[in-house]
Design a protein around this nucleic acid. Structure first.
Lengths: 205, 205, 205, 205
DNA sequence: TATGAATGAGATTTCATTCAT
DNA sequence: CATGAATGAAATCTCATTCAT
């Protein structure tokens, strides 16, 4: 069997098993025997169970991080004074994210809910953190227009969390990409409206 | 050692272990030896590992379900025509829920995040389902006032989910009950506003 | 099977296997199946492979350390000015040691040569160190009688090493306890003579 | 890469690994990857793991055996009647041995302590045996001068053992060749004296 | 002159569970 | 009321070795 064939088959079978059982409960025996190989093969092609998980998951993570960092890098050069603009931005991001996520449907499902015990169990948290830091920038610019108000840090974190949850929820409840896009638009809209209305609190002790 | 003493100690130590490791990774050996007993004791007092988990968790679940069903039973007798009333209702429910949840802090943490692999891994989903069915009733009453509109089922499910997530997030980010109550109020407010604004969609194909 | 029976059989079979293969290469599978049990039994009765090794070995180590510390504690109260006395002392110690060692023949063989990889791999070194520190005391008293001389530290360590090697050699070349005692006496005598003649060096830089 | 280059690198990396982990625990993967090759290469250049070990070790063994056999061959033609001569002889041998051993420091360390499990695990024993047979010749000549005395075979073996141990001890406790030579001289002197004093026993049953 | 793929047998360890007492 | 002994199945991982290319 050629290099790519076995390795690819291993990754494919691993994806299936991780999706079904989660990282911790996934069985290397099952994965390798499904692939027509023996457990040792995993240790030839990958470092170990975590290495295999990485092979399943890494490309999609890179894609996601690249999309987000590039998006927010562009943002920095834009003008945030207009509400409408921000909305458009989010719509565009939403589409890109839905595309990315549905292009990597299984992997994203795994990352959202099946990575417990692996070296990647905090990926979702790190995405939330990334979003939170970007949302903080926006919120602080926004706060300048409202003297006597300041950013509500709990709400900031919660809303960033909700933003990510929205995609997790989308993924696990709507397998169709087109319908997903229809669903996510009002949710993003809702998020922005809510952000505007609730991100600031009175500036008191 | 009397019946109750050993049983109670077992439940107490199990709670600690489940919270730390989650159901699947929790070790009965650890639990029983922490309790000054041996593994066999679990099988005397309970059915098996799942039975022990149930003993840790069941009372709080009952409390939660009772609170919710009673709350919604009361609701049914009330008049939903006024927005303000609904808001007050939710504030009251929020307080009751925060109290219940923080009275059972550890167990709720376990149910939210550590039940994977147990027979109770879908408890949170069933709570969401309960909420969703109640929210549907409200939404349908609300829809009657807007001809040409119908309930957006995806949004209904999503918002019910968010409602539950809000408490999960609260629990894992705010250990202080008073601050928790302060945090949850704007969130509930936000939920209702969002519900009003986004739960209906145009009645077309 | 009663407690002691299985545990004792496990220890007995482990002793045989460790003696044959050494700690690292010894197979728990072999040990347990020889004992008519399964590998899990080791983990019930002992902590792990090292724990099993400890159970095989610990008693003899304690005996050895006790013998040595008690012997040297007695020494401290005695008068070291006479050569002959010291010799007698060593003869007596030699006999006690031979007895102890031949009472625990297999275990001592294991400790001397088969403990590599275990938590006890340095036991022999620690015995040498104990001896060295006692020999140093003797050597320094001895040095006082020879102005311009000092203790040769390399020789001190080497001779302490040789002292222990003597017993290791004895054990692996003479299985008969009586003949062993006959062999060890001239060796001990030789050790003392050599000690007297070579432990001091000229006190120069 | 040319034949010799790869082969030499393999031997070099193997030396390092054997020294660190010992034969049994040494990993061919580690060795070959350190050498920039793959495991298969070992089986191309050498028979197997033991063959590789041999390549690391054989030259030094040959050197040692050659040195010893040549030394003792010369001896045979000399006159042993004078004590002083013998001493000088040993001093000269000591220097040659120290040179040889420190020229092959790593390999000798491996042979002394890391060959367990390999086909060469008895090399040290065979050196001892060689020495013992030579010492026996000397001892028997010596015995002729003392009617009623005979060679103490146990002592003969033990002293031959000690002779080799001396070099092992030297190697592992003194990395500096010059200091090593200083240390070994009194030890060799001690050995000869001891030999003279203890190699004979009374000729009775 | 090597590589790269893969095996297969082994290792230790963990664990829920059972059951006679 | 609970123990203590033991199982059996599974887990991950390591490794020397083979062999077609």
């Amino acid at each position: 069997m050629s290099d790519n064939e076995s390795k690819a088959k291993l990754i494919e079978c691993a994806k299936k098993e991780f999706l079904e059982k989660g990282f911790a409960k996934a069985s290397l025996r099952k994965i390798t025997s499904d692939a027509g190989l023996t457990t040792g093969a995993v240790y030839f092609f990958f470092r170990d169970k975590n290495g295999l998980f990485g092979a399943v998951v890494e490309e999609a993570i890179e894609g996601l991080k690249k999309l987000l960092t590039e998006h927010y890098a562009d943002d920095m050069e834009e003008d945030f004074s207009e509400y409408v603009h921000v909305t458009g931005d989010h719509d565009e991001l939403a589409k890109k994210l839905v595309d990315l996520i549905y292009d990597n449907y299984d992997v994203m499902m795994i990352l959202f809910d099946k990575a417990h015990g692996s070296e990647y169990e905090n990926v979702v948290d790190s995405v939330i953190a990334l979003l939170e830091s970007e949302n903080l920038k926006t919120a602080e610019k926004y706060a300048k227009a409202f003297p006597g108000k300041r950013v509500n840090k709990y709400m900031l974190h919660y809303l960033s969390h909700v933003q990510v949850d929205a995609f997790e929820h989308l993924l696990s409840h709507e397998s169709n990409r087109e319908r997903a896009l229809e669903h996510i638009k009002p949710v993003m809209d809702m998020f922005i409206t809510t952000f505007m209305n609730y991100i600031l609190e009175d500036d008191e002790v």
